[in-house]
Simulated scan of single mutants.
Amino acid sequence: MRAARCTIVREWQEAGIKTSLGNEWTTRSLKVMLCNPRMCGLRELDGELVRDMDDELVRGQWKPIITVEEWTAIRTIFDSRKGYFIGRDMKIMKPHQPDYRDHSYLLSGILRCGRTQPDGKPCNTPLRVTRKKGVKHHSYACLSKAEGGCGRLSRRGDLVDEYVSEAVLAKLEEAAFTASAGQVEWGKEDQLKDVVSRLDELTAQWNAGNITNNFFFKLAPGLEKEIARLRAESANFAGSAKVRQARAGADVADIRRRWNLPEKEGGFPISRKRAYIREALHTVIVYPASKGPKTFNPDLLYPVWRED
């Protein structure tokens, strides 16, 4: 079915057919449309088809495109594929392992395509993992145009994994080194107390009838907004302080050692490594390589670091 969807999407893209929002069709948006019960004149709420008091399906006031039976068949096909691997020939293969939600590759969904599109905007599509027969290493590649990407960028996966891992470990070592020197106190407690006191005094004067409604409602919103801003800043500082404390107490040498060990020898599982990477990075933008020899160039990887 995925192959059929790709064919349909390519035909619609070539014909210039757009979605209701004016976007190009992708296999994902086509699947969402096909699974929507509005296609057959029904409505869905919280995963359940809407029924009336007599337990009859509620029909919409619009003309259905397909019958309920046809929609049910389509939905059944998609649902039957949940929880199973699907081969390139679209055959249902072995079931997912219980912990399938854990990614099998270090940077799945973290890398993004940095190729510039004809309209001048970056592609920005998350890269997926591909493997070629007879090749030991995996690759990270952009989705095809039919799937929402550009399909024109690919990078050797094991080398990207190694580079990003080293960058994240170095960041952890830097953070652990500087964490103890970080600011211990927020430093704006008195400022917050002052603004709260001013609002309390203003409210007391208004309750006593000493100031007009116009004067009170002119000043109060600004003070309330400042209080909310300072309280949010205080909460963010407290959260960052906990992160800094954790970093200061982290044994980065042990993290590095376990990072490079096989899991059966005490090494970290992929999920633990990804947690460290997610804490350190928003994403890694992969820029296209120039024509010529395909040598790995780390300068074409741009990590977007999180800020404390």
Rank of each mutant, 00 (worst) to 15 (best):
A4W: 14
K242W: 02
R38E: 08
A232D: 12
R128T: 15
F216Y: 15
A208Y: 06
V164M: 02
R38D: 00
N124T: 15
G182T: 08
A275F: 10
S271N: 08
R128W: 12
I285K: 02
E185L: 12
D52F: 06
W71L: 05
D99A: 10
S29E: 12
S139P: 00
I92W: 04
K273Q: 15
I270W: 01
I74T: 09
T19Y: 05
T130V: 13
S271T: 11
R10D: 11
A73L: 15
T76K: 13
V164Q: 01
E265Q: 14
W259V: 10
R51E: 11
R229N: 13
N260Q: 13
L230C: 09
T7N: 06
R244T: 01
G149I: 00
T130I: 13
L301H: 01
V304W: 08
V164L: 07
C6G: 14
R258N: 05
I92Q: 04
S165L: 04
K188F: 12
E201P: 00
E173C: 00
S271G: 05
F78A: 04
D299P: 04
L159P: 06
S139L: 11
A232N: 15
A181G: 13
R256D: 04
R115K: 15
K193L: 06
D299M: 07
K94D: 15
N297Q: 06
R131E: 09
H137S: 12
R75N: 12
A228G: 12
A181R: 11
L42R: 08
T212M: 04
H138I: 08
V304D: 15
P262L: 07
Q97M: 07
D55T: 07
S154M: 08
Q191A: 09
A241W: 03
G157V: 01
V304F: 03
M53D: 11
R2G: 15
N210R: 09
L107N: 01
H103T: 10
A232S: 14
V160G: 00
A241D: 03
V286Q: 03
W206M: 09
R274K: 12
Q191E: 14
A246T: 11
G120Q: 13
G249D: 09
S154G: 05
